[in-house]
Structures are given as C-alpha cells and as structure tokens.
Design a protein around this nucleic acid. Structure first.
Lengths: 155, 155
DNA sequence: TATTGTTATACTCTATAACTATA
DNA sequence: TATAGTTATAGAGTATAACAATA
C-alpha cells in the first residue's frame, strides 16, 4: 500500500496481471496439440538462445530440475532436441534444438498465427496497433524475468 | 499465405502469439500457489460474469465438461464457489462464486500485482505506457475468443 | 563437501468413454 | 432421442526426496 515507490507502475500492475490471466485460456487454445505449453516454450527458448545447460533451462522456464530432465527426455525422444556433454565438466549437460525441432517450432508458430489472425482481424485498427506497440514491452518483461531466474537479484 | 485478406493483422499475428508464449513462464511465476492457473482463471471469470452454467464455464475456460465438473468440485470443497440448481430445468447446474472465493481472488490479485510491479518498475516509462495502452485490446481479444467458444461462429 | 543431473514416488489435473437423469 | 452433468479410467506432467557422479 505504500504509495509512489514505483511511479505509475504500481496501480497498473493489478490490471496488467489480470489481463494476462484472461489470456490464459486463449493461449492454450492457440497452441496446437502434440506439445504441452511448457514443451513449446522450452523449444522456443532453445531456438532463440542456442544451446543451454539443463539447469539454466529449468530456471528460465520456471520448472524444477527434475521436471526439466524429464521434459528434455521427452523432447529428445521425439528428436526435437539433442543433449551434449561439456568437455570440461562431466556433470554438465547441454541441450540444443535440432533441425526437426526448428521445423516443429515453425509449424506451431504458423498454426498459432493463423488462429490468432482471425481474432485480430476483428479488433479495431487502434487495438491492433496497441497490441503491436506493446510487443517490445512484453518481450522486455519476459526477458527481465528470465534473467532474474538465472541470476536472482536481491530478493 | 494468401495476402491482404486481413489488413495488417496477419503479419503481426506470429509475433504477437510468440510474445504471448514468452510470457507463459512469467504468468506461472506470478500466480501464487494453492490454485492452479485454470482454477484461478475460472474463479476470475465467475467474479466478473456472475453465476454461469457448468457447460458455459467449461467452454469459456477451454476445458472439457468433465474437467470442469471436477474443477468446480474442488473449488466447492474449498468453499470458493457454490452450485445451485435451475428451477426450470433439473439438468442444469449453476456455479457461483462465494464471498470466500472473492476474498481469494483479491488476495491472489494483490500477490500477483506486487510481484509484477517490481518487474514493471524496471521497464522504461514508454514501455510501461505501451503495456497499459494494450490492456483494452488484450481484454477485447480474450472476450472475443470466449464469446466464440460459447457460440461458435462459422468454422 | 558442493554441484549437476537423474531416478523414485506420489500427487494434481486433464481427456475420453461410459453412464445417469432430465427434457 | 437429445442434452446436462457425473463417474470411471488412464495418461501426461509436475514436485519433493533420495540418489549417483563429477568437481
């Protein structure tokens, strides 16, 4: 309740998180079956960021290390990712997306875009513009959070 | 691939859905434990929309009818919702949020807002504004989709 | 002794199919 | 016969705890 510690961000935070929550069911509907949302997001992270350690992947996707072990196991079994060892540290496992995985990401992205564009077309031009204009902020928000998970700040 | 059927919405759809996907892990992190994301979203829908039939609730949350039966059962057991019968049709079940449920929604919303505001404060003012400006579009998108689920359009 | 990742186990949640009750 | 909702069953996916291997 303490006022003006964070400029105008504070009053808006409640509405923004409520808006995100309302998108929850839509996001599930957009995602083609075959991969869970976690699996799809993990694949997307690997495509954007390149090979990553299993622990880092678990942190950036917000799941536990054992859960990521199993998720990577499923993705590897499906040929979508590959594991590799660190030559300098035998404990470390790197996870990398395969070409097959990239194809899967592309297919899913196209399917989502097709479904979403039908809805977007029914928004007003102003609303479409507002969504597009918010994309950099959405990306920045997601990146900030992921970076915090990898190297927690103060709290 | 067919061009200009939907103005500028089409090229942006891919980026927007990718942005949503990147928010996925953040959304899970924002949500306090105790209720699943589906449970929280369902409670939020009931608070906004008032009593709803179980079938309609299942459609608007994007889960099957049996899944909603069980989810409502869990929420009712926790005292967060109440069922009531339709006097005119003995088959119909209405689901309504209780005061305890409203309190839960408020608590969760406050917790999410607190976590999110720490991240929002680290965005530039422009980015904060862009997010706030996109809220009406996000709400409209969610509503469009929910309405379609309740009464499917053409496809 | 600390760190990285895996295995074991139990639990939550979901979907499909079969069922009951009302219309 | 169709519709609203429930029950039965099986499966996916997660977390906690215990473990193995490397540093």
């Amino acid at each position: 309740m303490k006022a003006q510690t964070t400029s105008r961000a504070e009053p808006a935070a409640g509405e923004i998180s409520a808006g995100f929550e309302r998108l929850w069911a839509l996001m599930r509907w957009l995602s083609p079956p075959g991969l869970s949302l976690n699996a799809g997001a993990t694949l997307g992270t690997l495509q954007r960021s390149g090979p990553r350690r299993l622990t880092a992947l678990a942190a950036s996707e917000g799941v536990t290390q054992p859960a990521m072990t199993q998720l990577v196991g499923r993705l590897a079994e499906a040929g979508l990712v590959a594991r590799s060892a660190d030559p300098d540290d035998g404990r470390v496992v790197y996870v990398e997306i395969t070409q097959e995985g990239r194809d899967m990401v592309a297919r899913r992205r196209a399917a989502r875009a097709e479904r979403l564009s039908m809805l977007l077309a029914r928004l007003s031009p102003d609303q479409q513009d507002a969504l597009a204009a918010a994309l950099p902020a959405i990306d920045a928000l997601a990146s900030l959070w992921r970076d915090d998970q990898l190297a927690p700040p103060a709290a």
